[in-house]
Amino acid sequence: MNKNFSRKYLGIPYILFLMIFVVMPLLVILYYAFTDGTGQFTLSNIARFFTDPNTLGTLFYSFSLAFVTTCVCLLIAYPVAYILARSTFKSKRVIVLIFVMPMWINFTLRVTALKEILTMVEGNLAFHPFLNSVIGMSYDFLPFMILPLYTTLSKLDKSLLEAAADLGADDLRTFWKITFPLSMPGIVSGISMVFLPAMTNYVVLDMVYNSTYIMGSLIGSYFSAYDWHNGSMIALILLIIICLFSIFTNGQEEVDARGGSLL
């Protein structure tokens, strides 16, 4: 080995890996989405998605479910994160840990627990499928909303709040004019951690006996039917939605939201 050995060559295996296991699968999806069983180019898959009332209904249902779930998570997580960030508890770290710890318990086991409790309260889960799905998803994704909000709020420059108070702003005004706008990055990253999974995580729906499809279930059902072409089209549509979302976020926030800094 000589001094001309360049450390950048170490990147080659990883870039190759990304090309094979990240880029190639997406290209294959793209190919399948626009071809039919005989390999002929076709627009019928996309036409089918946008003309079939069932699939359009699924898209609408996914959006509604994801929207309501995100709102519920935000409404619960924001006060919690705000109180934790501003609290003067001696062992703040431990308390934050208690709130986000469930994210390290397998989600199917957690949703099972929730399902048993809901069954006890409601008797038959089938009567409120939408409500139960929202509760199930909020339960599943809540820690991923609390953590980014807490991180952003605890980094907030306290002197700005003091300045606002000195200049005569009351608490409410200070909150809407300073705290809330400055916590936007946390809100955006929390929303991206909740909204997309809520459109696709059909296991939560299955577990609370909601038989209505969301976008994820469509992939699952086309997959079971060996229909790669329509399945790929759904995957492609999801990818486009995801791309639109990720313009507003970056990966570092995802690592933080999953407790990367706590681990």
């Binding site: 870039i15 990304l18 090309m19 296991f21 990240v22 880029v23 699968p25 997406l26 294959v28 999806i29 399948y32 991206s192 997309l196 999974p197 459109m199 696709t200 995580n201 059909y202 994820g216 992939i219 699952g220 997959f223 790669w228 399945g231 790929s232 995957a235 999801l238 990818l239 995801i242 979302f245 990720s246 976020t249 970056n250 990966g251 995802e254």
Partner: peptide, 19 residues
């Protein structure tokens, strides 16, 4: 490219790798 699996839905990642 590194960002793609991070933000992607797991359903899409799993499905596309399987395909």
């Amino acid at each position: 490219v590194n960002q793609i699996p991070v933000v992607n839905a797991d359903v899409v990642t799993g499905f596309s790798i399987c395909i």
